[in-house]
Every structure is written in C-alpha cells, then in structure tokens.
Design a protein around this nucleic acid. Structure first.
Lengths: 340, 340
DNA sequence: GACTGGCACTCGCTACAGTCGAGTGCCAGT
DNA sequence: ACTGGCACTCGACTGTAGCGAGTGCCAGTC
C-alpha cells in the first residue's frame, strides 16, 4: 500500500515527462531520461503498483503510462515545489502592470499578463462589490424624472444605474439627496448597507421620500442584493495548443463553461490570498471542465481578498510553474491596489 | 461570359445546399432537391462554366462543388433576399433587451442575444467615446493629492480615471474645478473638446492652474486622444459547431484575432446604421480571418451610429438569415438607446 | 528479498492493395 | 440547346500484414 521513495520518484518522473512531451511514457525512456539508478524492469514493477493504486494508467495496452487526475494530485501535494520565477518573468510582471490608468485597465492588463506567462486561459474577477466599501455616490440629473446613480467603490469599481423617478424633482432636491446618501453610506461595506439604506428612506423628509424610495430600491436591488460580479478573460487561443489531444478532442464544453460568468466566478471567486487552490480534472464540479485543471487564488490589498484570479488549462499542465506565476501576479496586483 | 438565369439558379442552389448540408454538392442531388427542370448533365455544363469563372470549385476531382468566396459574394449581392425574421426571433429580441439596468447590461445582453440567434460569434462595440458628448464630469477626492475623475457620456458610458495632483488642494478648490470643467465641457462632443480643454487651463485662476493642468492632461490623454474603445464578445463556443471542417481545422487563428480588440474594432467599428457590411473570407484584410466571414452594421439612436456590432462565422454561413438578424438587433438596440 | 535480463505477448500505427461509388467531362443523338 | 450514355477519376472505406514500443512475468543473481 505504502509508496516508497522510488515509486514516488517514478511518479514524479512520469508526470514531468508527460507534461513536457505530451506522450505516454514508457519504462525504458524513463530510466534513460532520469537517473533512477535501476533497470527498466524494476521501474515496470513500480509502475504496475502505481497503476493499481490509481495514480497512472495506460491509454492502450501496449502504450506507456499517463498520470491520472489522482496522480497529478499526489504530484502537486507531495512531489513538487513551487518554482521560483525567473527574473524575466518578474520583469514582465512589473513592466506589464505599471501605467495602468484605471481599474478596467488594471484588470485587463492582469488577465493578459497571466495568459501570456502561463500560456493558459486566464480569468480575473473584478474586485467584488460585496467586499467593497462606498467611497462616493453621485447623482447626475438626466432629465427632471431621471437620475443617473454612480457609485464609486474604494476598490476602484464604478457602477452606474439609471433611476426613473415617480415624479419630477427640482435640482435642489437632487443636491439634498446626494448629500443624504453620501452622509449615511460613504465608508460602509456594501454587505452592511441594507439597514442603512432602509433607515435613509424612513428618516427622509416627506417631500423627498418618493424619490428616496425609488433610489433606495435601485441601490438595494441592483447593487447590493444582485451584486454584479464581473470577470475578464484572456488567452482562449491557448486552448488550441497541444493540438486536440488535451480536452479529449473538443473545445466545445470548455468554451461554453468559460462564457458562463457564474461558473467562472464559482471557480475562482472563493479563494483567500496567500492560499492557492488547485482543482484537477475530476475534482472539478462542473461537468464541462472535467478535462481541465484550474489554479486560482485571491488577491487584494493587504491580506484580505477582494476578488479571485486564476488560470484554466489541460490537466497536463506545468503545475509548479503555473502556481508560482498565479501567486506572483496576485501579489503584484494586490500591491497595486494597495497604492490606490 | 455572362451568366444566364439558370446558371445563377444553379449557383444559388449550390450555396443553399452546401450551407445546409456542409457537404460538396453534385449535379444529381442538385436536380433532385431543387426543381431546376433540366437534367444533371445540363447542370454539369453550367457548373463547368461557374467553375471556370471562379464561383465554385471542387475540393477533389471526383467530389461535388463548393462555393468559393467569390461565389458567396455573388450570392449575397444578387441571389438572396434578406429573410424576414420569424415571430419567435422577434419576440426573443424584445424579451432579451427589456429590463437592462445599465449600459454594460445592454451591451452584454445584446452580444449574447446575437450569439444565440445567429449561432455564431457575436461582437458588440460599446458606444464610441469619440461619438459621445459629455453629460457630466465628476471629481471625487480620494486624498488631498488624488482625485477620481468620472466622465458620464450621453451614450451611457461611464469612464473613470485617477488624477494625481502635483500639490494638495482643499475641498473648495475641487468644487471650483468641478464647476469649471462642467460649465465648459458638458454638452460638447468628445472629438471637439481639445481646444476647450486647452482654454480651460489658460483661463483658470492662478491657484487652480497646476491642478487644472494635470486634470486636463488626464482628460486629453486618456479619454480623448487615446479614446478607449471597448467591445464585448460572446458565443465563441459556436466556433466548434460543424466539427473542424470550417476554419480549415484550426480555431487558433480565429481565437487569436478575436482577442485583439483593435482588430475586432476595425472589423465592426466602421459601418453606418442601416447599411450592413458583409466581408467574405478573402475579402478580409486580417490574415487570421481568411477562413471566416463577418456581417456587421452600425447602431445608434436615430440615424447616427455610435458603435458597431456584428457576427463572425465560417464562410459557409446562412447569409440572408444572419444579415436579417444583425440588422434587427442593431435596430432594437438603437431604439433602446434612444429612450435613454 | 530486491533487483535484473530475457522473453513472449499485446496492440496501435502505418503502408499497401482492392473495392465501391459519387461525381465528373465528353460526345453523339434528339 | 438539352439529354442520355459512358468511360474515367479519385476519395473513402476495408482488410491484411509487418513493425515496434511497451508490457507482464519468470527465472536467475547479488
């Protein structure tokens, strides 16, 4: 049952070779490429055990071995160290992220950077509104019965909503409304605002009440309850690397899953910063992604997470390198956000 | 040289059959499926002429005929009418677009709708800043040396930029700045603002001048000159329909092109509303898209275009249906924008 | 007891030959 | 000007055979 050191070394060698060559690896080539100090026959015996335990498998009877999802899991957990980044990568990260003009820009640059460095599909969640605080609320009159509500969050996110007022209101009232909502709400976390918004309506003077009621409805319904999470994607073209071998021949399910924001959010939107989550193949709850692996982490200024980011690729992926890159990018983005 | 009516009918039949079946179409099946009133041999003669003229070709010597890009072009220009939309499609469009809460939402819904209806990849450009007017400019103090500049355009677009001031300024000055820029700029088209922004700096009172200078720099550089155009994509999974026959086996180049916003903008960002542009295969200037066709049009409130939208798919595409859908969606979106 | 060399076996891959049939071009006939 | 007939082409499919990478097992060795 127990796997001795050599068997683990064999598994590691299989994973590394298979990731590099994309071809099932046999006992002979294995001893040639790695200094295992034993003969192919011995390796074969080890392989038989590894296969019995479910860490590797044979695509066909007379082919070499390929790691299973379970094999990759063991590899990630016990057989690999996170690769340090190369100086070139470090420089790329820095160069890529300086000069971003706004949050959109930061997110876009980040997602492209991640895709480029890992050569996988990258996903970045915009800072979650649920974890943001209100920095400012602006009301811009569009007409006498229409306001545009703009919310600026401390994370840099800016959301706008159209508010249709039940009755026309004068400009002075708009000023009052603006002052009131800002007084009460600036500085509060979005997840904590509902009672405050409620209070605003109840405390408001009669002639402002109708407007305040609709305004609060919009605020609650479209910004807080249905807090709109957004994501950015890049690098889908990377899915076509490695021919059609990865993803068992069809990109279809992967592309479909990538388009479902809800799915992606669930995938990358839960991690804390400083912990990195690796989901390998089957471990994934989404059926469409059974042939894929996801490496994700949280990012944010300091130690709290305001959103997630990660990459998605074939199970046959360079885990140590990918994990290192994802972490590094998350850290840099966090620092960038802390500056603002 | 001239193609008589029957030859054109044959071409039309070939295009329609090939689009429907995705298989090269031969003379026999052609006369069976369409009432051409002549024998296969006659059709073969016509086909020989059509091939000579470059409208169709044979993938292999003993296979049926397939339309060339030139053949599709003739079909689109002279042999097809725009299909009227089905009531179901009409309803889908209406149902899909009501209830959008903001511009982002409108664009997202539109792009998904287009992808779903045409079963192709859909692209929607956000209303172009260059064609927008300033509705309001807001300055939100982040710290004493930092402002967040928020521009709200009449098209509904909202852009934010961080402004780093050279020296701290008091809150009253921010109010003054806000008043000044709004007085001068609200209502003007973005393409016409540069001289006005310049004037703002020159006319400003001395103690506001440093702040006004940085502010105007940000305005000019990041909002006007480098007017950031944005696009939304959906339906990439549709590229995998029709196996790997379309796009000559590799999605790679297509996916790469789709990720280049600049490329996509060039592709869909130029048309006027009410004119629909169809680019077929080779006609495309982008090498990566030589195997694809693009149907695009402009949209906007009234008759002026504020942005483009369209779909991209294999040259083997249902042109009449796609053109109809793209037009209809553009019209609905235009109406929706006109309401705001 | 752990490792190794040897050996028979499996099975996917490639090459090759043969058949089938859809589709063609051409031509003589109406 | 159209049609029926015919010989021809060539891709798709099928079956066979040989190759070789890789395996499992076993007897032998340190």
């Amino acid at each position: 049952m127990g796997l001795d050191d050599r068997k683990l070394a064999v598994l590691r060698a299989i994973v590394e070779d298979y990731v590099a060559t994309q071809e099932p690896v046999g006992s002979k080539t294995l001893v040639e490429r790695h200094q295992l100090g034993v003969s192919p026959a011995t390796v074969r015996n080890d392989m038989a055990v590894l296969e019995e335990e479910g860490y590797i498998r044979q695509p066909h009877t007379s082919a070499g071995r390929v790691p299973t999802d379970r094999g990759y899991r063991l590899f990630v957990d016990r057989l690999s160290r996170v690769k340090p980044l190369s100086p070139a990568e470090r420089r790329a990260i820095e160069r890529f992220l300086v000069g971003a003009v706004d949050l959109d820009d930061v997110v876009h640059r980040t997602v492209r950077l991640l895709a480029q460095l890992t050569r996988q599909v990258a996903v970045v969640q915009y800072p979650s509104l649920a974890r943001s605080s209100v920095r400012h609320l602006e009301l811009v009159p569009i007409s006498t019965t229409r306001l545009m509500l703009v919310m600026i969050a401390d994370t840099g996110r800016v959301e706008q909503r159209l508010v249709e007022l039940p009755t026309p209101i004068p400009a002075d009232d708009v000023t009052d409304l603006r002052r009131l909502v800002n007084e009460k709400l600036v500085g509060t976390r979005l997840s904590e605002t509902p009672p405050l918004v409620q209070a605003l309506v109840e405390e408001s003077v009669p002639h402002l009440r109708p407007a305040m009621t609709t305004l609060s409805t919009v605020l609650l319904e479209t910004l807080i309850e249905r807090h709109e999470e957004r994501i950015a994607l890049a690098g889908t073209a990377n899915l076509t690397r490695g021919g059609l071998l990865d993803f068992q021949g069809s990109l279809r399910p992967i592309l479909e899953a990538l388009e479902e924001e809800v799915v992606m959010l669930k995938l990358i939107g839960e991690a804390e910063p400083s912990t990195t989550r690796v989901l390998i193949g089957d471990e994934n709850e989404i059926d469409n992604l059974r042939a894929a692996s996801v490496v994700s982490t949280g990012y944010g200024p300091g130690t709290t997470s305001v959103g997630g980011l990660g990459v998605l690729g074939p199970t046959r992926m360079d885990y140590p390198g990918t994990i290192a890159t994802v972490r590094a990018v998350a850290r840099y983005v966090g620092e960038l956000l802390a500056q603002n």
